[in-house]
Simulated scan of single mutants.
Amino acid sequence: MSEKPRIALIAHDKKKIDLIMFVREHVDVFKKCALFATSTTGNILREKVKLELTSFKSGPLGGDLQIGSLVASDEIDFVIFLRDPLTAQPHEPDVSALLRVCDVHNKPLATNLATAEALVMEIRRFLKLSDVGKE
């Protein structure tokens, strides 16, 4: 892992509010990381949480695959992808490819809030931040 953890943030439409709330809760961690996101998710995080990040295309237009490419080339350390398991996604093959590339390259992947919390705890430990004094 690089000195500055590199995190991809992705959320299906029905999970975007959950991601915003989660990132706000842990903004002290995310401000110390290099952030990447698919287009719509990135725009919302920029607007609502005032984070700097690199955006790619939206998921259905290939953004999931762009992030997968970064995972495969070891340019992403962690992926937080809040998926909506109850809604069919037209780009499900792209979603599956991203999940697979995380498994193939042994990258930590969170697909719900519980696993995202575990990842952030690990990132917080890496950054040597305490839970006290979160912004």
Rank of each mutant, 00 (worst) to 15 (best):
D77C: 00
K48L: 14
L51I: 05
F36L: 06
G133L: 00
F78W: 13
E135G: 11
P5S: 03
V104T: 10
K50T: 12
N112C: 08
Q89M: 14
S130H: 06
R24I: 01
L98H: 03
K128P: 04
Q66D: 13
L119V: 11
G59E: 02
E122S: 11
K14P: 00
L86A: 11
P93K: 09
F36Y: 15
V120K: 07
F30I: 01
V27D: 06
R125A: 15
V49Q: 07
F22C: 06
M1P: 13
L9V: 03
T87R: 05
P85H: 12
L35F: 09
V101F: 05
R46F: 15
G42D: 09
R46L: 11
L129Q: 09
I80F: 04
T111G: 01
E47P: 02
A34I: 08
R125K: 13
T111L: 07
E117F: 10
G59Q: 08
D84W: 08
K107S: 04
Q66T: 05
I44V: 15
E135T: 13
L119R: 02
N112L: 01
K57I: 01
V101S: 04
H105A: 00
V79Q: 00
D28V: 01
R83C: 08
D94I: 04
S96G: 09
L129W: 12
R124C: 08
I7H: 03
L127K: 05
G133N: 01
L51F: 09
F126M: 12
D103K: 01
V49W: 10
F36I: 02
R100I: 07
L61W: 08
G62A: 03
P93R: 08
E47D: 15
S96P: 01
H91G: 07
G62V: 00
T87D: 12
L65W: 04
A88Y: 11
D103H: 10
E3H: 13
S69P: 01
L127N: 00
I10N: 03
T54P: 02
P108G: 04
I44P: 05
C102E: 02
K107R: 15
A72T: 00
I10P: 04
R124E: 09
D131N: 12
F126W: 14
H12Q: 02
A72N: 07
P93I: 10
G62S: 00
K31M: 06
S73N: 11
A11Y: 08
E3C: 05
I10Q: 03
K48M: 14
K128W: 05
L45K: 06
T41S: 09
R24H: 13
T87P: 04
M1D: 15
C102P: 04
K134I: 07
E75M: 13
E122H: 13
P93S: 11
E92Y: 10
L99Q: 11
K14F: 08
F30L: 03
T54C: 06
P93T: 10
F36A: 00
T41E: 00
S96W: 03
I7T: 00
L99C: 12
M121N: 13
V101N: 05
P5N: 04
D28R: 07
L113S: 00
R83N: 11
L45P: 08
R83P: 04
V71N: 03
L70H: 02
E117G: 09
E92K: 11
S39R: 13
S58T: 14
M21H: 13
E3N: 14
L98G: 02
H105I: 07
L119Q: 14
A97L: 10
H12R: 02
K16P: 08
K32H: 05
V132F: 11
